[in-house]
Simulated assay, not measured.
Amino acid sequence: MPRHVLVTGGAGYIGSHACKALSRAGFVPVTFDNLSTGWREAVRFGPLEVGDLGDPARLAQVFDRWRPVAVMHFAALSLVGDSMRDPAGYWRANVLGALNLAEAAVNAGCLDFVLSSTCATYGDQDGVVLTEETPQAPINAYGGSKRAIEDILRDFGASHGLRSVIFRYFNVAGADPEGEVGECHRPETHLIPLLLDAIAGLRPALTVYGSDYATPDGTCIRDYVHVADLVEAHVLGLNWLLEGRGSRVFCLGTGRGFSVREVIEAARAVTNRSVPVVEGDRRPGDATRLVCGSARAVEELGWRPGRSTLRAMIADAWRWHQTGGYER
């Protein structure tokens, strides 16, 4: 009998990769997506149910039709700057949407829930390696809304027996090594695809925001995880729940991160092309170094982030970029 997993945001960047990983692991991913930022073309590994998390009746229909064994929740508004300009929109979409989803899952007897959360729940934790025990103190509506979702899952666990695995991480990069799905945002805000656009001549140059930080090369350091490694952790987390091992939080990161200049140099080496760069001023609120560890995920889940090197992430992203993505 097929084991269906409801994947919210399954038409998006990370969600579509998760659907492929789930399919490979023997599950049938059922994508639930309103297609506001996702791509219909990315839904290749299971059925698509178009709907919005703000519609409880539609959620109930989907749960009743597919009877999923678990939920994997990626759908969210996720731009920090936008969340500062429109906090109401972020709290409404992210928190109310997750509340509707958790209620629908409980009502359907689907009590295993994997949440794609964020290290933005920690707030400004500059220069430390974040762990699951680091105090959470979000400083924007995006991080605050994600922490609220974590609280919802905790409360639903206490009252309704909902079991959850929560993953916190920073930046995700790369693409499916086999080229079936990849990263395609409109507008694009992520460093590596912006960099590749500049190399390909699709934008004038990449702006480096600040070169006087207290780092070896003066640019900010951020943690990156390859999308294939990230979604593999989510499948491991799903199996953790299905084996009855209970609720758990895991951080996913390299523990060291990469500077903006390191990313630029790696892109030059991988593509064998020059990188047009202009120097800009620091952006308000940018921290010097943000990284997190993954010791618990490695030890308890057996997670092995083997593709989370700059060369692999950029090479896979460049290969996808050259196809033209979903707009080809």
Rank of each mutant, 00 (worst) to 15 (best):
Y122N: 14
F113Y: 15
L111S: 03
G127I: 03
N100C: 10
E103M: 09
F113K: 06
L111Q: 07
A105Q: 01
A108K: 03
F113C: 09
N107F: 09
L115E: 12
C119E: 11
V114T: 09
A98F: 05
A102R: 07
D126T: 09
S116I: 05
D124V: 11
C119N: 13
C110T: 15
T121F: 05
F113R: 00
T118M: 07
V95A: 04
F113H: 09
N107G: 15
D126A: 05
L101Y: 04
Q125W: 12
E103R: 15
L99G: 07
T121Y: 00
D112W: 14
N100L: 08
L101K: 05
L111D: 01
A120K: 07
L111I: 09
N100W: 06
S117A: 12
D124H: 12
S117V: 04
E103T: 07
F113I: 11
A120R: 01
T121M: 04
A98R: 00
A102S: 12
V106G: 05
C119M: 12
L111H: 12
N100A: 08
A102H: 03
F113M: 09
L111F: 11
A105T: 04
G109T: 04
T118H: 02
C119D: 13
L96C: 11
S116W: 02
A102D: 04
C119L: 10
V95L: 09
T118V: 09
T118I: 08
T118P: 02
A102N: 08
A98Y: 01
Y122A: 12
A93L: 12
A108S: 13
V114Q: 00
F113S: 08
L101H: 03
A105C: 04
N100D: 07
T121A: 13
A102I: 10
C119S: 14
L101G: 06
F113Q: 01
Y122E: 09
V95K: 00
C119Y: 01
L96I: 11
A104I: 04
G97M: 04
Y122I: 05
D112M: 14
L101V: 05
A93N: 15
A120N: 14
Y122W: 10
G109V: 06
G123N: 04
D124L: 11
N94I: 05
N94D: 08
S117M: 06
D124T: 10
L99V: 02
L101E: 06
T118G: 02
T118E: 03
C110Y: 05
A98I: 00
A104G: 14
G127P: 00
D126P: 08
N100S: 11
G97C: 00
A98V: 02
N94W: 02
D124Y: 11
F113T: 04
D126G: 06
A104Q: 07
A104K: 07
A104F: 01
G97K: 03
L115Y: 15
N107K: 15
L96D: 14
N107T: 14
L99C: 08
V106S: 10
D124G: 06
A108C: 10
D126V: 03
A98S: 15
E103V: 09
G123K: 09
L111V: 13
L96H: 14
D112L: 14
G127V: 02
N107A: 15
F113V: 13
V106L: 08
Q125A: 15
A108T: 06
L99A: 13
L115A: 13
G109M: 06
A102V: 11
A93V: 15
A105F: 03
V114R: 02
